[in-house]
C-alpha cells in the first residue's frame, strides 16, 4: 500500500470504522510517514472545524409560511370524501387523455405499449398519495475534484472504471454498464419527485435530444449505443429499469415513469 491508500484509511480510522488488521497497518505507517501524520492531523482539524459550525437559525415565520402554503393540502387530507373525489377526477382525466391519444392513433407504437387505463390510474393515485420510500441515485463514484456543476460526466466514470485506478472500484467493482435495447423503457421509481420534468433535465444534462413528453413519459432520440448506455445508466439511478419495447431498431426511446413498489 502507498500513501494514497493510507490517506483513504485515515478518515475511517478517525471514525473507528477500520478492520483491526488495516488499523494496525495504518498505525505502523503513521509512525514512519511524516506526510501521512500531517494528513491525519489536518483531517482531524477539518472534521472538528466542520463540527463546530453553528447551526443556522430557522427563519422567522417559517412555520406560518409553511402552513399557509399547505392550506389546500390540509383540507385534502382532513376530508376523506374530497380525497376520494380528487382521486376519481384524476382517474377520469388520465382515462380520457389516454383514450384521446388512442382514438387519434398518433403512433402505433404508443398504442402497443400503453397500459390499460385502470392500471395507469392506480399509478397516478399511488403517486398522489405519496409512495415515498425514496429511491435516491445509486452509487456515484465521482471524481475527487471540486465540481460546482454537481454531476460527474458519465464517460468519465466509465473511463475511471476501466482504468481501475480508483480505490473504490478496486474494493467494490461497479456492476457492468448495460444499455437500453428496445424503444420502450419503464422506470419504477419510489420518489414522487421524479416526473417527466426530471427526465427532461437528465436528457438536457446529457445532451440527448428530447422529442416529446406527456404526463408520465418522455420520448428521447437515440443516435448511438453510447446514448443507450447513458440512458440506462441515468435511469438505473432513479429506480428499477425494465426494457419492454419490441422494436430494436427505432432511433427513439419512450421512457415511462411508473410508481415503484
Amino acid at each position: 500500500m502507498d500513501c494514497k491508500d493510507f490517506d483513504y484509511y485515515i478518515s475511517l480510522y478517525i471514525d473507528d470504522m477500520l478492520e483491526e488488521q488495516d488499523k494496525e497497518e495504518l498505525e505502523n505507517h503513521l509512525k514512519q510517514c511524516k506526510i501521512c501524520r500531517e494528513s491525519f492531523q489536518e483531517t482531524q482539524d477539518v472534521i472538528s472545524m466542520v463540527n463546530s459550525l453553528e447551526p443556522e437559525p430557522v427563519p422567522h415565520g417559517f412555520k406560518d409560511k409553511l402552513f399557509s402554503r399547505m392550506g389546500s393540502g390540509r383540507t385534502l387530507l382532513a376530508s376523506p370524501w374530497l380525497r376520494w373525489a380528487g382521486a376519481v377526477a384524476g382517474v377520469l382525466v388520465i382515462f380520457f387523455s389516454i383514450k384521446a391519444v388512442l382514438d387519434t392513433g398518433i403512433t402505433d407504437r404508443l398504442a402497443t405499449t400503453v397500459t390499460p387505463p385502470g392500471e395507469i390510474a392506480e399509478d397516478a393515485i399511488g403517486e398522489e398519495s405519496g409512495v415515498m420510500s425514496f429511491e435516491s441515485p445509486a452509487e456515484d463514484e465521482a471524481a475527487m475534484e471540486v465540481d460546482d456543476t454537481g454531476y460527474a460526466d458519465i464517460q468519465e466514470e466509465v473511463l475511471r472504471d476501466e482504468d481501475g485506478v480508483d480505490i473504490i472500484s478496486k474494493e467494490q467493482p461497479r456492476a457492468e454498464i448495460s444499455e437500453i435495447q428496445s424503444d420502450v423503457v419503464e422506470v419504477y421509481v419510489q420518489d414522487i419527485c421524479i416526473t417527466p420534468e426530471t427526465l427532461k433535465f437528465i436528457a438536457i444534462d446529457n445532451e440527448l435530444e428530447l422529442i416529446g413528453s406527456d404526463e408520465n413519459s418522455i420520448d428521447i432520440k437515440v443516435s448511438s449505443q453510447e446514448d443507450r448506455s447513458i440512458i440506462y445508466h441515468e435511469l438505473s439511478k432513479l429506480g428499477e429499469v425494465k426494457d419492454i419495447g419490441e422494436n430494436m431498431d427505432n432511433d427513439q426511446v419512450k421512457i415511462i415513469i411508473r410508481a415503484g413498489e
Binding site: 478518515s11 494528513s39 472534521i47
Partner: peptide, 24 residues
C-alpha cells in the same frame, strides 16, 4: 442516501480529503 455502506465509507473519505486539501 440509499447507497451501500462501502460507498458511504469511500465518499466520506474522499469528501474529507477534498475538503482538507481545498481548505489548505
Amino acid at each position: 442516501l440509499n447507497i451501500p455502506l462501502g460507498t458511504v465509507k469511500s465518499n466520506i473519505s474522499r469528501a474529507r480529503a477534498l475538503l482538507r486539501e481545498t481548505l489548505k
